[in-house]
């Protein structure tokens, strides 16, 4: 062994950088979650590729590709804690973009983090100094997953979920939309990782994202295209303000309990909120159905 160098763990897995998602998501492997294929219908959900158990060091992990977003989640736990006694496990989520990836809304929110950014880029352990945006995503995911985990079953323990964003979409559209879309898929991916880690949960949390257009209609799983069309015709900023964006996460088998909600954008009233929640619920159900069949397939 070379003692002059700092070596990684012996069983490190080197990620397949440079292989495009088209090759990976060959859509016939049993370990692939696929939503309906036609993309012509506006309310269909984009195909996504899902794989579990890719990180051997972790107790559970999941890998998800959707569009150009690539997300990896590893779950560590239950791990014993030192120090004082707690009667239920503690739970934390930490979300990180790989250093070379531009973060949506970077220029607006990560204003005085320049120091931290350069710090975390050079820092070998890489687990210090999350940016404001990373913290925001972490909080949403943590809030959404917290009610689903049966923490009472694990006294004196801790669960740590680490999310790595390997790739994101090119910023052709609104940074908020990009951020929320990413958050939406991270929740779905993290839920699967928790199941893969055999953590006892009440239900699998799944999430949906919707966007309202000018006339108040709801578009499920917006992918930026709709807005692009608008942008060509209209003034950019003002039109973006009009759209309401919403991410909501649910426990579908627990009476559709709403575990996470995040609404951004324009004006809001009761009707629109109801529509947003219902739209997200529909999408979360579709994703849930996909995840269910994926989990059943992977057991067989």
């Amino acid at each position: 062994m070379d003692r002059r160098r700092l070596l990684g763990p012996l069983n490190t897995v080197i990620p397949n950088i440079g292989i495009s998602s088209e090759i990976n998501g060959s859509k016939s492997t049993p370990q692939t979650g696929i939503s309906s294929s036609s993309s012509s219908n506006k309310n269909d959900i984009e195909n996504f590729f899902l794989k579990t158990g890719i990180i051997e060091n972790a107790n559970g992990s999941a890998y998800l590709e959707v569009g150009n977003n690539v997300i990896e989640v590893s779950v560590f736990g239950p791990r014993p804690i030192r120090g004082s006694f707690i009667d239920r496990a503690s739970f934390s989520v930490e979300c990180k973009f790989l250093p070379y990836i531009s973060q949506p809304g970077d220029e607006l929110f990560n204003t005085n983090n320049q120091f931290n950014n350069s710090n975390s880029n050079t820092n070998a352990n890489g687990r210090t100094g999350l940016t404001t945006i990373e913290h925001k995503i972490s909080s949403y995911v943590e809030t959404a997953l917290l009610p689903s985990i049966i923490l009472e079953k694990y006294p004196k323990s801790t669960f740590d979920v680490f999310v790595t964003i390997v790739a994101t979409e090119t910023p052709t559209y609104n940074s908020n939309e990009k951020l929320m879309r990413l958050t939406n898929w991270i929740v779905n991916c993290a839920s699967v990782a928790l199941v893969d880690a055999n953590v006892e949960v009440k239900d699998i949390v799944t999430s949906g994202i919707v966007k309202s257009n000018k006339s108040g209609d709801i578009i499920i799983d917006p992918r930026g295209q709709i807005e692009d069309e608008q942008n060509e015709q209209d003034e950019q900023d003002d039109q973006n303000e009009e759209n309401v964006l919403g991410v909501a996460s649910f426990m579908n088998l627990n009476n559709d309990q709403l575990v996470g909600i995040w609404v951004e954008g324009g004006d809001i009233d009761q009707d629109l909120v109801t529509k947003v929640i219902n739209g997200c619920n529909d999408m979360s159900k579709k994703i849930r159905a996909n995840i269910n069949s994926f989990l059943i397939d992977s057991l067989q």
Binding site: R88, V244, L258, W262, V273
Partner: peptide, 17 residues
């Protein structure tokens, strides 16, 4: 009321059962 609307666990640093 306008957006953002979010939910969160307000009890920070504690284990809210």
């Amino acid at each position: 009321v306008i957006t953002p609307i979010i939910n969160m666990n307000l009890a920070t640093n504690s284990n809210n059962s």
